[in-house]
């Protein structure tokens, strides 16, 4: 390294700037190389995760299209829980709709909004509900996860008339759905969000299920 006194301040500054510039270029090159290596893997695993989520909530329902690409986006801040566009996956067998999967949001979570995946059959019955993202308290509110408790299955097979719409509440609020031990806020938010999703489905059934939409994932 050159002795500090031998260099003019301008030269020193220029050398420092050049060093920093070279280091930046090298760092960016490294990161983008690794990014290119990892990107196909990341996309594949994300796709596999999404598909596992969809097939998990669909259970025994048979279908032959690709629900990951056969999607539409809808908006309804009041009934879907978010002002942002909501993704709806359409599930079909031999071209006929067998389910719509709606990614709704339950804004009333204890810590933050809860992300839900609601599967509804063409007659308006729930095939199932899964929590896809939440920040509820570990050990209390996280019993809404399917792998932690069976609570989320209280919705299987239910519909808007079963129970009547005014009974779509947790028991504490005079409804038909059990709350969780030690956690009422979380189930209350989810029951409300699922009910709203069913109301939305009933109002927009044709739009959600129609085959002649812009994209069609049937092979």
């Amino acid at each position: 390294m050159a002795t500090p006194g031998a260099e003019s301040p301008t030269r020193r500054a220029a050398r420092a700037a050049a060093t920093l510039a070279i280091a930046t270029v090298l760092a960016v090159a490294l990161v983008s190389w690794i990014h290119d290596l990892a990107q196909p893997r990341i996309e594949a695993t994300q796709r596999a995760q999404r598909l596992a989520q969809l097939t998990g909530v669909l259970g025994a329902t048979r279908y032959d299209n690709d629900p990951l690409t056969d999607t539409i986006e809808v908006r309804d801040a009041e009934l879907l829980g978010t002002a942002a566009p909501v993704l709806v996956h359409r599930v079909r067998l031999a071209g006929k709709p067998v389910a719509a999967l709606v990614n709704v949001v339950a804004p009333g979570g204890y810590a933050a909004a809860i992300q839900l995946l609601v599967a509804i059959d063409p007659a308006g019955h729930l095939i199932g509900v899964r929590v896809t993202g939440h920040r509820e308290t570990p050990g209390l509110g996280d019993a809404i996860e399917e792998r932690r408790s069976a609570w989320i299955h209280v919705f299987d097979g239910r519909a808007l008339g079963d129970p009547a719409i005014e009974r779509w509440r947790v028991r504490k609020d005079g409804g038909d759905f059990d709350q969780l031990t030690g956690a009422t806020v979380t189930p209350r938010a989810i029951v409300g969000a699922v009910r709203n999703a069913l109301v939305y489905f009933e109002r927009h059934r044709d739009e959600l299920l129609s085959v002649d939409a812009a994209r069609d994932g049937t092979p």
Partner: peptide, 28 residues
Amino acid sequence: WLPREVRLAVFVLVIAAAVTSVELAMSG
């Protein structure tokens, strides 16, 4: 080889690049 004035900045850059690489590898 690093001039004293930018040594810390270069180290921060190196660490950020290493962390980003680890994160990308892990998410893949």
